[in-house]
Design a protein around this nucleic acid. Structure first.
Length: 483
DNA sequence: TCTGGGGTCCTCACCCTC
DNA sequence: TCTGGAGGGTGAGGACCC
């Protein structure tokens, strides 16, 4: 906890939904919901207009549709969000070398390390300037919290939302926090919140009054001590610019529970391959392989195996995942499968043991695993939204779902691929009408709204899905570049 | 029509070694 | 030789965050 409020927390307002509204003028001022659109999808972000209907993130999309039937439901376009995020993070790095991104839309900045703020006034000026710069560069609003610690800066930005700035003056922290719900504090989720509520503690003030010993008794040593410190407004965690990844994992939820053991094995292989692709792309190898299985009743179990040394070998991860699967009873069906690698080491630590095992396995020949190396599961390579493997797809995706690719691997037959081509929200260009975006598709037709960032809301036209004048295109910049 | 995906951290149990 | 405790590694699960 420092004397001046020079820790800044930036939180972009309803980020994914705001990006979509900025790139699609007809959606401005409307309820926009970004998330999984399949039968088991959940909301990633809802615009403030959608929140008025009770829609919020992590809510099942099906429930959101009931609450807000006229909203625009869009599949996330992470590439676009990432590119906007890079612009924002670039502006933060102009303020200080110490920038700690928490996600695409959130970051801490140590302004003191940047020398640009040393007291309340200079910190506030820096925060306001940052908000103006973000608006100019992206057309989006973000909320800024300023305080003497990370925890309080985050609380401040939350209070400032949307499109605001709040600075917590040193010395006023306890007074400010006291009436707030315990759920305000980072690390207090539904379970801890309920636990505390049953002990008669609902506000931060009551948390502070309870005392450290009582909190340790209630929620355990580590959590209790941390909670008590936060209730007093104490938090001396530094802003950390670089953070090493500790694990890499991929998982898929299936639209329909899988029962067929052979199919489950194939999916696990596919996930193992994708996981290795991600692992290699990040320049790591790992020692512990983790298999995650969520069963039909939502019960989740994990099984893990630690190897003698780190590996990034596809065959080794596949084999370990397959072994782990053998120990899992999948009777009744599984709704989710995941494969992860933890215990990461630098890629350069080549694992000769693992390599030699893989080589031996390969040499043992074609009697091997189902599918074999040639079939499905080509190199997954780069992380792309809805990349899709080459295996059997989810059943029963209704055409009305506008062909958004569910995140599980899906069969791309020619027709299917064509439908997927025109996923809701994706950018397109027509030879005659110019740039636009797909509003929906189905029954062999695709409906496009012709507008672009900065334009007035555009008109809608419908085409055959194989119209030669219509092509997918890359997203346009949200704000026109002048130079 | 319930409940994603990618993470981190913590706790607890168990086994093994010293 | 037996026993007990400490401590590390491993495996599993839960809570939480965005």
């Amino acid at each position: 906890m420092r004397a001046a409020p020079t820790i800044l927390h930036l939180d972009m307002d309803a980020f994914y939904a705001s990006v979509e509204q900025a790139s699609k003028p007809s959606l401005r001022g409307k309820a926009v919901i970004v998330g999984g659109l399949g039968p088991r999808g959940v909301v990633a972000t809802a615009s403030y207009e959608a929140r008025r209907f009770g829609v919020h993130s992590a809510m099942p999309t099906a429930q959101a549709r009931r609450l807000c039937p006229n909203g625009a439901y869009l599949f996330p376009r992470f590439e676009l969000y990432r590119s906007v995020s890079e612009i924002v993070m670039g502006l933060l790095r102009e303020l200080s070398p110490l920038v700690e991104p928490l996600s695409l839309d959130e970051a801490f900045v140590d302004l003191e390390a940047g020398g640009g703020a040393w007291d309340s006034r200079s910190a506030r000026e820096t925060g306001e300037r940052l908000r103006a710069d973000i608006l100019a560069a992206t057309g989006l609003t973000g909320s800024v919290g300023l305080a003497g610690s990370k925890m309080l800066a985050k609380v401040a930005s939350e209070e400032a939302k949307p499109d605001g700035l709040l600075l917590i003056e040193p010395g006023t922290e306890r007074e400010l926090l006291a009436p707030m719900s315990v759920r305000t504090l980072p690390g207090v989720g539904p379970a801890t919140g309920e636990h505390l509520r049953r002990a008669g503690i609902t506000s931060v003030g009551e948390l502070a009054e309870a005392g450290e010993d009582e909190l340790v008794r209630l929620v355990g040593r580590s959590h209790g001590v941390g909670l008590y410190r936060m209730a007093l407004g104490r938090d001396d965690r530094p802003v950390v610019a670089e953070r090493d990844a500790k694990s890499v994992s991929v998982e898929d939820t299936f639209d329909v529970d899988l029962h067929d053991r052979v199919r489950i094995r194939i999916e696990v292989q596919r996930l193992a391959d994708r996981c290795v692709g991600r692992l290699r792309a990040s320049g790591h190898s790992g020692r512990t392989i983790v298999l995650k299985v969520r069963r039909y009743d939502f019960s989740t179990l994990t099984r893990s195996e630690t190897l003698r040394g780190p590996t990034d070998d596809q065959a080794v991860v596949r084999e370990a995942a397959a072994r782990l699967l053998e120990a899992v009873d999948t009777t009744g069906g599984v709704r989710l499968l995941g494969v992860g690698v933890t215990g990461l080491a630098d890629y350069t630590q080549e694992d000769l043991f693992a390599q030699s095992q893989a080589a031996a396995a390969a040499a043992e020949g074609a009697e091997g695993a189902p599918g074999g190396p040639s079939g499905a599961g080509g190199p997954e390579g780069l992380p792309g939204a809805g990349g899709g493997g080459a295996l059997e797809g989810p059943q029963g995706v209704p055409e009305a779902a506008v062909g958004e690719g569910p995140t599980d691997g899906s069969t791309d037959g020619p027709e299917r691929a064509r439908e997927r081509h025109w996923a809701a929200g994706r950018d397109v260009r027509h030879a005659v009408y110019g740039p636009g975006w797909v509003q929906g598709s189905g029954l062999g037709r695709v409906t496009v709204r012709f507008e672009q960032p900065g334009s007035a809301p555009g008109r809608v036209r419908t085409f055959q899905v194989d119209d030669p004048d219509l092509e997918p295109s890359d997203p346009l910049p949200l704000v026109g570049r002048t130079g």
